[in-house]
């Protein structure tokens, strides 16, 4: 046991933890952005709300979710420990700021990470916490005619306070009653400051992953003349461009829509 402890206490062991948790979080955000594409569907939040409900009620996903929260905390904590150690390795700093060529993002992972952590606290407090632990999120009822695909949407107030969701079918009409996270999202994204903060945070995601994704491979020792360029390509285009752009579009689009209302 002590040998394993030693491994993870070594400089490289800590880096391993950063890399593995980081990559795990990377896989998560792919799922997250994909699911959130429901927000762009013009279905009065039906798809999104069902998806949100699925995520919070399907047991295997719940386990993964808690692993995810752990990963976020470990990633942040080890990032902090490493940063402190790295500062300590240079007790007297230079008079002239370094001009050594290195990408901006690689030099500012701590700053970017801190922004992201702050973002996560707000983001999760606003949606996840309120969704799961408070009754500030209302309910919607979707009645969909299975034959014609016509859908009627109405607000719904459950009689039983412990009500979570229900899905029944009556005479070709599917009735889904579910928490309306979509409304919560639309509400939050009508606030300009909130939107700006989200966009800024997605910028941070972009730069954090621009360095972080390929850096994790480097840390794990997975570099290869042939495959490293592929990793770099994915890290740049998928993780630093497409995903953050996708995320950032959501508040922006909802904000613009809120202006029209």
């Amino acid at each position: 046991m002590s040998e394993i402890k030693q491994t993870f206490n070594s400089s490289l062991g800590k880096k391993l933890i950063m890399a593995l948790t980081g990559l795990f979080l990377c896989t998560f955000i792919i799922v997250h952005v994909a699911g959130n594409l429901f927000l762009f569907k013009n279905d009065d939040g039906y798809g999104f709300n069902v998806y949100a409900n699925f995520l919070t009620h399907f047991p295997p996903i719940e386990v993964v979710a808690y692993l995810l929260y752990l990963a976020i905390l470990v990633h942040a904590l080890y990032g902090l420990i490493l940063t402190i150690q790295n500062r300590r390795a240079r007790p007297v700093s230079y008079a002239v700021q370094t001009k050594s060529p290195a990408s901006w993002s690689s030099k500012n992972m701590g700053l970017l990470g801190s922004i992201l952590f702050l973002f996560l606290v707000i983001h999760m407090g606003d949606f996840w916490y309120k969704y799961k632990f408070t009754d500030t999120v209302g309910y919607k009822e979707y009645r969909t005619n299975v034959l014609t695909n016509e859908r009627i949407v109405s607000d719904f107030t459950p009689a039983d306070p412990s009500f979570e969701h229900s899905s029944t079918t009556e005479n070709d009409v599917e009735i889904v009653r579910v928490k309306d996270l979509h409304a919560r999202v639309a509400d939050s994204f009508s606030n300009v400051w909130y939107v700006l903060f989200y966009v800024l945070a997605m910028g941070a995601v972009s730069f954090h992953l621009l360095h972080g994704f390929q850096s994790a491979f480097q840390t794990l020792g997975w570099t290869h003349r042939k495959y490293s360029p592929v990793v770099k390509f994915i890290g740049t285009w998928l993780f630093a461009v497409i995903i953050p752009l996708g995320f950032a579009l959501m508040p922006v689009v909802y904000f613009i829509q809120s202006l029209g209302r």
């Binding site: 400089s11 790295n86 050594s100 850096s215």
Partner: peptide
């Protein structure tokens, strides 16, 4: 070698490439 490097108090690599 890594153990000795750690014992000397060098910082941790963050792959900046400097």
């Amino acid at each position: 070698m890594v153990a000795q490097m750690d014992a000397e108090g060098f910082g941790n690599c963050t792959n900046t490439g400097a």
